[in-house]
């Protein structure tokens, strides 16, 4: 078990350099790699070749779910289950249903968006294989930290380190599990 390679880590500090490096690493054919940044860097996801998020579809599903719940609830309770004559008004009319249709649509969208985000980012995951690495911890402070995982098909400890160094990374090193 001792010294199984986990991956290679390299530090960047310049947003221009990291954006350039991101496209180079992606072109080199790596797939299991990532850049950890303290804030979203514009265009970095595109340079990495990240596919557009499906979260918009999840949100839309939440919207549809909320809206149909609201319409169904007001129609079924008012016009089907217990029709009650209130001031001679209709048992169900879309006009009076609008406020609740709107609120539940928003609520459904918000809940689906947040939990969709959690799912797509695999949150919560209270463990990370790099968590004991000192460089990795800087990613929430002021450093752009590239990680290339050892289980990538193209991974070789030497090759990955060399690539990162050639792209301008500092403090490039191999992380191993004990």
């Amino acid at each position: 078990m001792s010294n199984t390679p986990v991956g290679v880590v390299g530090e960047f500090t310049d947003p221009n350099v990291i954006t350039h490096a991101a496209s180079k690493i992606a072109h080199a054919g790596y797939t299991k790699w990532d850049i950890h940044t303290p804030y979203p860097v514009h265009g970095l996801d595109k340079a990495m070749g990240v596919k557009r998020s499906i979260i918009t579809y999840i949100s839309f599903a939440g919207l549809c779910g909320g809206l149909s719940t609201a319409l169904g609830l007001q129609y079924w309770t008012g016009a089907v289950d217990y029709p009650l004559n209130i001031g001679g008004k209709g048992f169900f009319d879309w006009q009076f249903s609008i406020p609740i249709d709107f609120e539940l649509s928003i609520l459904g969208t918000a809940i689906f968006t947040v939990f969709g985000l959690f799912h797509l980012c695999r949150l919560p995951t209270w463990y990370n294989k790099y968590q004991n690495d000192a460089s990795f911890a800087k990613a929430t402070d002021d450093t752009f930290v590239v990680t290339i995982d050892a289980d990538d098909d193209r991974f070789s400890a030497e090759g990955a380190q060399q690539l990162l160094r050639s792209l301008g990374a500092e403090n490039v090193h191999l992380v191993t599990a004990e």
Binding site: H36, V50, T56, A110, C121, T140
Partner: peptide, 24 residues
């Protein structure tokens, strides 16, 4: 913090989700 690492792949979802939340 739910184990947030600042991954760019996560930031990508995050930014869109944040935009949707702001929009609604």
């Amino acid at each position: 913090s739910l184990g947030w690492t600042g991954s760019t792949r996560h930031w990508h979802h995050y930014e869109i989700a944040y935009m949707i939340l702001a929009g609604i």
